[in-house]
Structure formats: C-alpha cells, structure tokens
Computed example of a mutant assay.
Amino acid sequence: MTRNPLSKKAVSLAPSGIRKFFDIVSEMEDAISLGVGEPDFDTPWRVREEGIYSLERGRTFYTSNAGLKELKIEISRYLERTIHVTYNHASEVLVTVGGSEAIDLAFRAMLDSGDEVLIPQPSYVSYLPCAVLADGVPVTIPLKHENAFRLTREELEAAITPRTKILVLPFPNNPTGSVMTKEDLEPIAEVVKEHDLYVVSDEIYSELTYSGQHCSIASLPGMRERTLVINGFSKGFAMTGWRLGYVCGPAPIVEQMTKIHQYAIMCAPTTSQYAAVEALRNCGKDVENMRESYNQRRRFLMNEFRKMGLQCFEPFGAFYAFPSIQEFGMTSEEFATRLLQEEKVAVVPGTAFGDCGEGFLRISYAYSLEDLKEAIGRLEKFVRRLRG
C-alpha cells in the first residue's frame, strides 16, 4: 500500500471561502464582482517609475534578509509620523512578502505546541490556519453586530486561559470595516498587560480610516514591548501585486522572525522594496486621494442600504461593508449563491470569515462608482423580489 504523501495538518485546513464565487464569476458574462479585497486604483505612477528605474539601474540582486536599509529607515520614520511609535530600523523592522507572511512568521516565531491564539471574528481568513500550521491552538472570539464588531474587555477576558499567549487585533477590520478607537483599545491593553499576553496587531488598512486618525495599540503605555505591528503597501498604496509588507516590534521577536524568513524566503522582492521607499517618502497625497474616493463610495453604499431597508452598521475603516441579510431566512452562502445566479453579482458570504459571520455579506467598495451603482441596482431588485 502506498504511503499517504499528505500531512494531516495540511489536509485539515479548509480552503479560503473568499475565492469560490470568483472562479464562477470569471466564467460568467456580464457578471459584476464586489468581492475582491483589492484597490481598483493603479499603483501611483511615481512608485511604478521608481520600480522601473531600479530595474534600469540593474538593482536586481538580493537585499539583506531583513530588507533594504533605506526602506527600513523610511518605515521607521513613517510609523513615527502616523502611529507615534519609534522603532530601531536595524533591529526592530523586518520587510516581508506581504502582510500575510508577517502573520505566518509571527506565529511560527512565538508559538509552542498548545499555545493559544485569540482570534476575534469575523476577520481575515489567514489567522486561523497560520496558527494551526505553527502548532498553536486558535480560539475564536465571536464579535457582535450590536457592538459594531469591536472587541470588548468582557469578551477578551472570557476567552483567556492559562495557555493563552497571543491576541490578534485585526483593525481596521476585514470584512466588517469596523475600527477601534483609542478609547476602545485602552481597556484591551489593560487586560493584555494583566495576563502577560502579546498582541499581533494587523494594521494593513490603517491608511483607510474615515473618522478620526487610526490608533495603534502599540502606542498605548506599556504596549510597545508586547506588540507586533504588521502593515504593508497592498491596500493603502494600491500595491497588491508588488507583494510587500513589514512587521515592527521587540527586537528579540523580530530576530527570530528574520531567522525563519531567511530560510523560507531569503528576502522580499528587490524592485518592490525600492519602489516602496518612494511610496513612503512622496505618495502621501496619492493615499489621501484614494481614501477620499473610497469614502465617497462608502457613503454611497450606506445611503443605498438605507434606501432599500438593508440593515448595515456604518463601517469607518478598510473598504468593506457588512450588511445583514438575516431577515430573508437563508444562509449567507445561499443568499450569495442566488444573488450570483439570478442577478450576476458576486459578494462574499460572511461565513468565509468565521461562523459568526452567518447572516451577513462582505461587499467591497474598491470598485468604481459606476460598477457600484449597477451592482447595487441589481441587489435592490433581488431584495425586492425576496420580500415579495
């Protein structure tokens, strides 16, 4: 009998629930997708130009494992300006292949078998499988619609056990668009310190907040030394295909993450790193323009939901809305499937982001207003038909 070549751990992982509908959309004529979490803007020209220039200059060799020195310096300066936390570029900054690699490295560097990772849900699909692959035990914390999907002190305390080691903070949130203010984070920080936990703060959407300035938990007293801040260039700078992220945090943790990164990756793409230096130095206005455009689309969506009587709390971050479809008495999967089949509009079922996403849909507004208007018109027709 032939030995099974597959790892039980790998086989046990469910495939991402985000992609299912888009394989269908690609084969469907006149379909509109509101599901992909990718900016519809081109990367700013000056960033592309710098990438081209770096190639023309023959800058095609490996950088140091932790990243290009100039880029790490700019990352440190950028975070000092934006979240008011200072990092030593030489020992506390690691450049990664997207924010997703940083999540994977963090868990592999910090977890021993059986250590628990608290994961508020609904949230990005990678946290749970990355924890499993690092031999950790994922413990989900269901967030509530009535709390605007923010994590509360009570929910956090109820989930902590003697094996808890890491809390994932996924804000601004994918898929809900929820944000946590300084006032929301302060009681969370107190619990983290009381129980001697560490925080993996995924701030990939930090540039896309629409009500006040983004606050990082790392900026609160006593939290810098127990927080890894993960960010990148995909969302705020419209650089998804450049595959570039970074993590900043305590030197002992970053050192071990860099060691794993050495063996698994070597270094992030050189061309992308040179381009990212330009992004951080000179593209603040481009980011602001994109944010204003997203905010216009966000307000349009919320107004349309109100007009069609679709319940949706107001999202103040990222580029997603998370409307409730509980009134229709069908699962999120059923609703999304019928919407695609009957009106050729693709959205993501809330359950792709955790069981507590049942009864909700993720709708991305990283699309033109023209596409949004057409898609929402089709959604309204579908909803009207369901209501009879």
Rank of each mutant, 00 (worst) to 15 (best):
K307Y: 11
G245L: 03
Y210E: 06
E370M: 06
V192C: 01
M28N: 04
I75C: 05
S211L: 07
R163D: 15
G388S: 10
G249I: 05
E334P: 00
P138K: 11
N289Y: 10
I325R: 09
N65M: 04
Q262A: 15
Q121A: 06
A14R: 12
I52H: 10
L369P: 06
L369R: 11
E370H: 08
V36H: 07
K381H: 10
P221E: 13
E74K: 14
R108P: 09
A336I: 04
L280K: 02
M28P: 01
Y198S: 02
G58R: 09
D30K: 14
G317W: 02
T270G: 07
A238P: 03
R378A: 08
G37A: 14
V36N: 12
L105V: 09
T181G: 07
V25D: 05
E334I: 01
K259P: 09
F319M: 08
M223T: 00
A134S: 15
E194H: 08
T176H: 04
I217Y: 07
N282E: 13
T271N: 04
I52A: 13
L339H: 04
F61K: 11
I230W: 12
E288T: 13
F328A: 04
Y320Q: 11
V139H: 08
I376G: 07
F149P: 00
T63Y: 06
K182Q: 15
Y127C: 02
S324Q: 10
R243C: 15
A106D: 02
G51M: 15
A279W: 01
L339S: 05
E92G: 03
R46A: 01
E116R: 14
R362W: 02
T82F: 08
A159T: 10
G51I: 06
T152S: 15
S324F: 13
R298Q: 03
V93N: 12
L169A: 11
P39D: 08
I160L: 03
G212N: 10
N231V: 00
R297Q: 07
A279P: 00
I253K: 00
A336E: 06
G136L: 05
N4M: 07
E358M: 13
G350V: 01
S126F: 08
E56H: 02
M290Q: 12
S364P: 02
L105S: 05
Q121E: 14
D104M: 10
A90S: 08
F22H: 12
T209V: 15
I103L: 14
D371K: 08
L301N: 12
V25G: 06
E186M: 09
K193C: 06
E70V: 02
R48S: 02
A189H: 05
S64V: 06
G284P: 14
K8A: 15
V85E: 03
K381S: 12
S211Q: 07
P39R: 05
D115R: 07
V93R: 10
H145R: 15
R226T: 06
S368G: 12
A148Q: 10
E370R: 11
G388D: 07
V36K: 12
I18Y: 03
D42M: 09
V93P: 07
E225W: 03
P269W: 05
C130L: 09
F149N: 01
S54F: 03
A158M: 04
R77C: 04
V117P: 03
E207D: 13
D196M: 00
S16C: 13
N231D: 15
E49I: 00
I52M: 12
P172T: 15
Q311I: 09
W242V: 00
E80K: 15
G377T: 03
